[in-house]
Design a protein around this nucleic acid. Structure first.
Lengths: 183, 183
DNA sequence: CGCGCGTTTCAGAAATTCCTGAAACTCATT
DNA sequence: AATGAGTTTCAGGAATTTCTGAAACGCGCG
């Protein structure tokens, strides 16, 4: 299949960006292709469109599935897997954030907790304290993320659009509420 | 120099995570070392502590500077560069977010705008619309980021600690204010 | 069971990224 | 302008990651 100029450029761009995103070029391109596709695609259609080897596409799809970034569909009388991306873009963003947190933050948080449990050797007191401080900061962010995660999209979008006005809310809160210490 | 167990583990962990973060192992380790160091370190001290080649350390420091993640210090009567990480962790988070946005989001936003300018070929209408939708979503997030960026740390932390209560604020806003369409 | 259709695994080739040592460069000092 | 401490650049070797084709596997069906 020949991709249109539009699709072609979009796909190539996502391929390049893929590397900056911790996914590889192939996976980025597959995702981009699915994102624009008018209907679900099966592995062979992807091979056809992008010219990768069959196994590479298979791997790529597996990786996208492990990221929860694609959905599986089936057609009657056809046992091939067809793939789509969720129609709701906000859902995609949530998934992306959640998965990156899982891969990039959570392991570090465990490690920090583990290090914090040990008694610092002489000379390591300041370093130990710095680790604790970092751990607290990450937990604050994590808690905040969990709470946003729990909002329905409607409210989340309303919140985002409130933007700067939140600053005032926060200023009020800062004065009126006992702030959790240190943070 | 022999690193203490604590520092050693922290440094190695950041090295491993580095790869998931789009910086390489060396750079991750250098950053971790500086982060825990009780005082600024110069390149040779880093070589000594981590056992990398001098030029590798030089490259790594250059990359960290390009990310704005380290600060330069000098000692009287010593023209070597000494490096530290900012004492304020929130400043580090801000930098990190800003830089990642610059590298991972901004180029895509330009590309999407560019693609959106072109008239879609027949058959590409839906794809074109999806691109526009994605562009709008990224702009919403970008605008929000810019507004958080502008808050002083105090307010930002207060906001983060408000957490779930923001949901209520947003619900109110959703009803009372004309929401920007689509979002 | 044995066939057909589809997916997954895997070892090695290809490509990319990382790291090093040597050489080049900078700049204050004599 | 020569010295020397310090930094940067760079070509190529080392290590890692990505990609491929071939073979193995899974499973519904006659």
């Amino acid at each position: 299949m020949q991709l249109s100029q539009l699709r072609q450029e979009f796909v190539l761009h996502f391929g390049e960006m893929g590397s900056r995103w911790g996914i590889n070029r192939t996976v980025g391109q597959i995702y981009a292709l699915l994102f624009l596709a008018d209907e679900p695609l099966c592995a062979d259609q992807i091979v056809e469109a992008l010219g990768f080897s069959r196994s590479n596409v298979s791997m790529g799809l597996k990786e996208l599935q492990s990221w929860n970034l694609v959905r599986l569909r089936h057609r009657p009388d056809d046992r091939r897997d067809y793939f789509t991306t969720p129609a709701d873009l906000w859902e995609i963003v949530r998934t992306l954030v959640a998965e990156r947190k899982k891969r990039e933050i959570d392991p570090t948080l465990s490690k920090l907790r583990e290090l914090e449990m040990t008694r610092p050797a002489p000379g390591d007191e300041a370093a130990h304290a710095r680790i604790a401080e970092l751990r607290r900061l990450i937990e604050t962010l994590t808690r905040f993320h969990a709470e946003l995660e729990a909002l329905e999209t409607e409210r989340l979008v309303a919140l985002l659009n409130m933007g700067a006005r939140l600053g005032k809310v926060a200023a009020g809160a800062g004065r009126l509420l006992p702030m959790r210490r240190k943070a």
